[in-house]
Design a protein around this nucleic acid. Structure first.
Lengths: 204, 204
DNA sequence: ACCTTTTTTCAACGCGTGATGAAATAGTCA
DNA sequence: TGACTATTTCATCACGCGTTGAAAAAAGGT
């Protein structure tokens, strides 16, 4: 039972001892690396090294860098249905508050890494924007707005997206203080009313 | 738009005939390239080719890729003082409206390219965030808020930044419709009140 | 005219990238 | 056990990157 994974030693070839999941290790390392350095900045070699694995494994398991990126970053960090349920669970006039809490909850959990990775990837991978739109507007906001029954749902959805994206940008990407370190309650009090107006208020 | 870059002839060496400003050509090409492909995606060679010039000129005139980037993208597309003046010119309760108009005016002028380039560069160039913060919060929002005389200026400034950044993100980077194509009046009616609340309203 | 300076192109360098195929090792099944 | 397969490392590939130094061509000064 030698589970201690020492790495000072010259690596032995061949199949690993047991239990160690290279695929999962690569995914974790990739997530962190893409978050920190962006798509082009995070090299296959650096990711592999971080996972304690040879770079060739990326090709073997994910068919290349792009495949790894797709699996590691391009997927939503929470089940959409769960999120929608949570948003709809309560009075419509508090929807904005629930939204702020939900998104901050999801994003703060990874220190904003997941959000930052997505934004940073819009450069390299054109379809990131597509995925973002699909998730944000179609899967999420429109379903929420549909049950609230507001008018001009597309416009409201994209307006709400500006507030949510903006919150993420300032908090996780450019990190402006004091907002970047503000606690959730402060954020809720400040942002929720504006979000609420986009969702159900008078938008002109 | 496109500088005459056609050249069937084999290029002759040496100093150019006359008048052609390679420096300016490089800057223009760089601006476009960085906007389209981000910092790492826009290669020195591609920029030079676009400008109809040898890649070595980048080093000669700007000391390298980073220098070119700094000159081409990292500078504000409008004089800050002018912008601040424009924002302060009018009643405080319409500040949000003037802000929306001003930023949309500046950014729409380049099709959102400048904004997109900045955001895309936050990955590669850490100091882009620094420049953004310096300009947005210190140079701009705080000066505006100082004359309005609001409380908790730092928080208000960063909150306003969320709305402005979010507007830029949705309109220029991820391009969610219908907001991406919405006319200025629609944007003003929708966004200005929320911005106004951040600036002078009750933020909890 | 000559010499000097500035601008430009060219050829090449060193490096790091993502990818590949073969060899080596560990597990699995008869 | 021995054959077979899955997994992993290694050595290496071709390519594109940013950068460099020298040579060539134009301009300017005397």
């Amino acid at each position: 039972m030698n589970d201690g994974t020492q790495q000072g030693e010259p690596k032995r070839r061949g199949r690993r001892a047991g239990g160690e999941d290279t695929k999962a290790a690569l995914l974790a390392a990739a997530r962190a690396a893409f978050v920190e350095r962006g798509y082009e900045g995070a090299t296959v070699r650096s990711i592999a090294a971080r996972a304690g694995v040879d770079a060739a494994m990326v090709n073997h398991w994910f068919g290349g860098k792009e495949g790894l990126f797709a699996k590691a970053v391009l997927q939503v960090p929470i089940d959409p249905n769960t999120l929608v349920e949570r948003l709809l669970d309560g009075p419509p006039e508090e929807m904005g508050e629930r939204m702020v809490r939900s998104f901050l909850g999801v994003w703060d959990a990874t220190g904003g890494g997941h959000f930052a990775a997505m934004v940073r990837s819009v450069t390299a991978q054109e379809r990131v924007a597509e995925v973002l739109r699909e998730f944000f507007v179609q899967t999420l906001l429109r379903r929420v707005l549909a049950t609230v029954g507001a008018d001009r749902q597309e416009l409201r959805a994209t307006l709400a997206a500006t507030q949510i994206f903006g919150m993420g940008m300032v908090r996780y990407v450019v990190r402006f203080e004091p907002l970047a370190s503000a606690d959730v309650e402060t954020m809720v009090k400040a942002v929720a009313p504006n979000l609420q107006r986009y969702l159900t208020g008078d938008i002109g």
